[in-house]
Design a protein around this nucleic acid. Structure first.
Lengths: 173, 173
DNA sequence: TATTTACAGGACCGAATCAGTCCGATATGA
DNA sequence: TCATATCGGACTGATTCGGTCCTGTAAATA
């Protein structure tokens, strides 16, 4: 049987890894229930309908990067390290997947052998910054706000006041 | 010997594939020399300092997607199918790498099993659209313009007049 | 018409990356 | 002391990426 042209997920660009995708859903869950002191992996897994080991891995990463605080031992678990308004999508993506860099030369200087005579380096930096900016202006509070507009123009996002560059207490390693 | 923390290219997000990266550099080269009727793969490879088979592959893809016109046979080669002002970065990326979709549910409906009860679907669509928009407002003409600003605020890009949605004569297959 | 040049399309393969699981160690509460 | 949970990382099968190569076809030239 021939599968008619179902779009392949793989050939799309700028796709987040599943881990990142899960991570953001998980953060949204935690943000939506602030009254619970700590959430353990099993409980979260049940809520977001994902296997426990996967959720556990994501939670560990988020804790190591400083987006969550963790409590070990019996009755332990995780909770948000900041208020939802202070946690941007850019922070989440950076924690789970590394820095935003659409080309090699945006990861670090000297990485691309063509950098010296590359004619389009400047424009790429601009585009890279636009994307960073877009992600930095949407917060966890927006993600869990049911009134967050489902139809919005880019200018409405980009026109917001910028958030502080990387937020407080980000743990880079 | 321990390699001190050199950033790994692999753990960065939203990175374009090398093919796409090459493709855009190649398009910039073609756009910069409009007087030449057709460019063949060997010549282009020499100019952008890349292996001929790689350049050939990229050129073929761009021609198939309608961004380039091709001339077969001796004295054959490629040339831009549109004016640089009418070719957006969004077009280039879409041709070389597929549609822009940061999550599965932005590729096509029904692909993600959690779509029905996903609480953050709406915001992702918004973010996705912002990125698309950013890429759609930079053209090949900008890439080859030496005066294209190297420091610019996102609003300066997003504040531009929008280009026509996908441009004329795009060939989707 | 023969020959050469160059594109068209796709097969192919090794390397790298991804997604998910699992394990031993450690910390905490009862 | 035992049960519960996080911590850190190893491990593996599946997928994707990057790059090469091969066969076929079209055009120009002699």
């Amino acid at each position: 049987m021939i599968r008619a042209s179902i779009p392949e997920v793989s050939d799309s660009v700028f796709r987040l890894s599943k881990i990142t995708d899960y991570g953001i859903v998980i953060l949204a869950h935690l943000g939506r229930e602030p009254e619970i002191v700590t959430h353990n992996a099993r409980e979260v897994a049940g809520q977001v309908d994902l296997p426990v080991p996967v959720v556990s891995k994501v939670l560990k990463t988020l804790a190591r990067k400083g987006l969550l605080e963790s409590q070990r031992g019996a009755k332990g678990g995780y909770l948000l390290a900041r208020r939802p308004e202070d946690l941007t999508v850019a922070d989440m993506v950076a924690a789970l997947e590394g820095p935003l860099a659409i080309t090699e030369c945006n990861v670090a200087p000297q990485l691309c052998q063509h950098e010296g005579h590359c004619a389009v380096k400047g424009p790429w930096k601009v585009i890279n910054d636009v994307m960073k900016e877009a992600l930095a202006r949407v917060t966890l509070a927006d993600l869990i706000d049911p009134s967050f507009p489902s139809e919005i123009t880019p200018l409405q996002i980009l026109g917001r006041l910028p958030r502080s560059e990387t937020g407080p207490g980000v743990h880079h390693d």
